[in-house]
Design a protein around this nucleic acid. Structure first.
Lengths: 251, 251
DNA sequence: CCAGTTTGTCCAAGCCATTGACAACGACTC
DNA sequence: GAGTCGTTGTCAATGGCTTGGACAAACTGG
């Protein structure tokens, strides 16, 4: 027992676990997302992740310094997935619309992962590339200098915030989600005409609104506003969605 | 706020803990928000909350069935605080703008609390009242039926998502926040002109953008888009926020 | 063949959420 | 006033979590 030279006698320890090199960052991130998709954010822990990998509860710490570190890697993977194969389109409105839709779809596909990492920035190459494309569209719209910088942040943060918000709701456990939806349904229908006349007026339509339609509505509103404030129209034809402004600034 | 835990100077003996009735839901929620504002979301735990109240680590469980239950109460308090004293304005654009600004300011004042509860709905009276006011503005804009319902959800969810997203970032610990900002600054400045020409073009302006300006930009874009899609103009004169009105559209 | 580094495992410390048993206290009945 | 009961604060305990340190197997370079 004194220290030292290998007492290789007979400890049947035998390392029942994995072989060296079985775990890589890529594998760990993939398994994390699988677990998150399956069990939600609450059930996600380092011990469970290790066991799911067939390894020790603490094995992941050999590859990520902390759980937060792993989280950033997951965020990076999400951005990468959302922006895979993205190309700039001819028209700047189309480019921005496409990016917002892509990010949202990816986040909705992995709500638990997204809700944990939506507000983090990773500076990964995918992120930088997306930023360049967005700014390109903003410049194409005729914004310049500080205004362009501000508009990029406005659109980029809008897209992230919206997708993150939707993901956060979907990341709640089924019961809380169901309870929330049911409660609203109930609250809408039982509202009194006197106390809340406006809700009363649309009480029948409120529960029927679908998430996809809500998103397309706000996206359309944002794009309409952008087009109006832009110095240059987009390459595609549609000048505005509903009515043209009487002041006639078609440019 | 009325009943502070009245503590007697020096109880002679026994009285190892608090008197009966020392804790109420209101007091607990207030102390929770104080702790969250001070120490952030990470350092917020039931034991700490109990100790901060001068009570046992588990005392809070006598008033809230679970931490999640407490969370909903905190969310309710936030909405209440945001909407306190809100009145409908003459112009529907002004009403919607005011609500978005109010919610954001409250969330920014309590980022940790907000980031934990932004995606929850509480069905509290304050929330219902806010909903009624928003729908009122949407109806005033001339939207009807299912379209009005959809637009209400679009604007309401937009406001919540944006404020929640900003709060989530501010709720990160100082170091991560600082690191994020610094990293972006660095990434912007060191970007190559060839690889990312668009970022390069605004690299100097990007780090200077302020959060308040970003918010006002997206808000202005959304309101411009809404005005364009609305069936009726708002009561106030301004036809658009950003550009100077050359010839005011009449009320 | 050996030394050094990686990486997987074991073990343990310290924190957390939550629960059940117990005890003091207030209200209510007789 | 005495007894009963529900409320609420405390205590002790359980099981899970993150994380760090010690050890050992396996791969690497010499």
């Amino acid at each position: 027992m004194t220290a030292a030279p290998r007492m290789r006698a007979n400890p049947p320890r035998q390392q029942r676990g994995l072989r060296r090199g079985s775990l890589t960052k890529e594998i760990i991130v993939s398994e994390s997302m699988r677990l998150l998709d399956e069990d939600g954010a609450d059930g996600f822990s380092m011990p469970k992740l290790g066991r799911a990998l067939g390894a020790d509860q603490t094995a992941v710490y050999r590859h990520f310094a902390s759980k937060d570190d792993l989280l950033l890697a997951i965020a990076d993977r999400l951005i990468e997935e959302a922006m895979a194969g993205l190309e700039r389109l001819d028209c700047w409105v189309g480019t921005l619309t496409e990016m917002c839709r892509r990010l949202r779809l990816t986040y909705l596909a992995h709500p638990a992962a997204a809700s944990m990492s939506a507000c983090r920035t990773t500076q990964g190459p995918a992120e930088i590339r997306a930023v360049d494309i967005i700014i390109g569209a903003i410049l194409e719209a005729g914004f310049e200098g500080a205004e362009a910088a501000r508009m990029y942040r406005a659109i980029g943060d809008f897209s992230l915030a919206w997708a993150g918000g939707e993901a956060a709701f979907l990341a709640l456990d089924r019961s809380a989600q169901q309870r929330d939806r049911a409660a609203w349904r109930q609250a809408y229908l039982s509202v009194s005409r006197e106390a809340h006349p406006n809700i009363w007026q649309v009480r029948a339509e409120l529960p029927e609104v679908r998430d996809d339609d809500i998103f397309e509505s706000i996206l359309s509103v944002v794009m309409a506003g952008l087009r109006q404030q832009a110095r240059r129209p987009c390459a595609c034809h549609a000048p505005a969605i509903s009515q043209p402004p009487p002041g006639g600034r078609r440019s």
